[in-house]
Design a protein around this nucleic acid. Sequence first.
DNA 1: AATCCATTTAGGGTATCATCGAAATATGAA
DNA 2: TTCATATTTCGATGATACCCTAAATGGATT
Lengths: 227, 227
Amino acid sequence: MNVYPDISYIAKLIAEPARAKILDCLMNGQALPAGELAYIAQVSHPTVSSHLAKLVDGKLLISEQHGRHRYFRLASQEVAEVLEKIGTIAPPVQIRSLRQSVNSGQLRYARTCYDHLAGELGVKITDALLDRGIITLTKEEYLVTEQGKKWFSAFGINLEEAANTRRIFAKPCLDWSERRYHISGWLGEAIAVRFFEQGWINKESNNRAVHLTEKGKRALRDEFDIM
Amino acid sequence: MNVYPDISYIAKLIAEPARAKILDCLMNGQALPAGELAYIAQVSHPTVSSHLAKLVDGKLLISEQHGRHRYFRLASQEVAEVLEKIGTIAPPVQIRSLRQSVNSGQLRYARTCYDHLAGELGVKITDALLDRGIITLTKEEYLVTEQGKKWFSAFGINLEEAANTRRIFAKPCLDWSERRYHISGWLGEAIAVRFFEQGWINKESNNRAVHLTEKGKRALRDEFDIM
DNA sequence: AATCCATTTAGGGTATCATCGAAATATGAA
DNA sequence: TTCATATTTCGATGATACCCTAAATGGATT
């Protein structure tokens, strides 16, 4: 493995606006068929097909055939992290409509990053868990404390299931809007799933924004002291 | 600030091979004049001038006029971090010569990332400092322990000078080869400077590789238990 | 003022690649 | 088998932007 990485190859894949739109809308970890991605990226089917082939070839996306549909998703959490990281130095995109402006505010407050929560909400939850000694940060990973194990059990997350996956348990992930770390990995996903299950948050399709429900607001205040 | 980042704009700047070469050779934090960058990127002066203008416009580089020379450097540590992060998912570049292969091995072992040490050496130093309780990792930053203050003083780093800068003290930075965190920020730079001063490491120009000297090998073994 | 050197501007050639319509393939449904 | 739907391949077109040479600018030196 005595080689160094070809950064411009990856950058070129992300540089094309239609491909960037595709990657962006898959950042929440969902899988979408080619036709839908063509609609989202505002290009024809042949064009999107060519873009998707390049993204798969470059290992940014993976695809699954389901019947006559072919579903595309991000190849890994790492890809999502790279896109978020580039966002930390990217200039703001031109805002053309009120809808875009509202959406951007929502994105900053809460969004999915691959399969876990990012934005202000993601960071606040992470901080709350750290402050209460439920998790701690070591070299590369968040660990659950003894006290934390009880807490997660009460919260409805069975930590033993993590052993059945090869996935990283819980590591810090940086996002562009807060420039702070939040929990990703198996635990990050488990927390997000639990939030959805309890009806504290819900999400729109074709959009990374996550909405906090009234029930969610109360729960955050009562259980996490997050206002 | 209700806006989201235009990722493809930044990606496009990095995507062009000549620009990628320019960015890469400035990753060690040095400033180089346009003429030298033209030579490194293997393009004519007018071409490099156009590339540099785009990079400055996109806030990836900043320039300083010195006489009739104009020196270019990375705009910030954050830019270097983004480039490193992209490297974590980029495919290996085609290796054409033995020299490239040797260089790539050296890069993996030790290199500068903006102004601090990265690669295996950077990670090992960070691990050693953590293991000995000289530093600890909190939410977003490394902190020096009480015991650590004495250690750094003996090592020749005056931590009080950090207060005079607006720079972040010490935060984790990820590199592509190890996929592990190492120390960046003010402390990361101070450590690297001290290593150079003591003749433990030295560097080549036009290249991010850092060489460990015989003296350095001994020092690492004796002072850090790093073999 | 005259000259030298580093860099930038101007202009034109060229290659790459995103784009789309039309046709082909592939899968599922009737 | 036939039809409908999803996606890809093919071929042609056009725009973008990278590249260079030649000329211009601007600072330093004599």
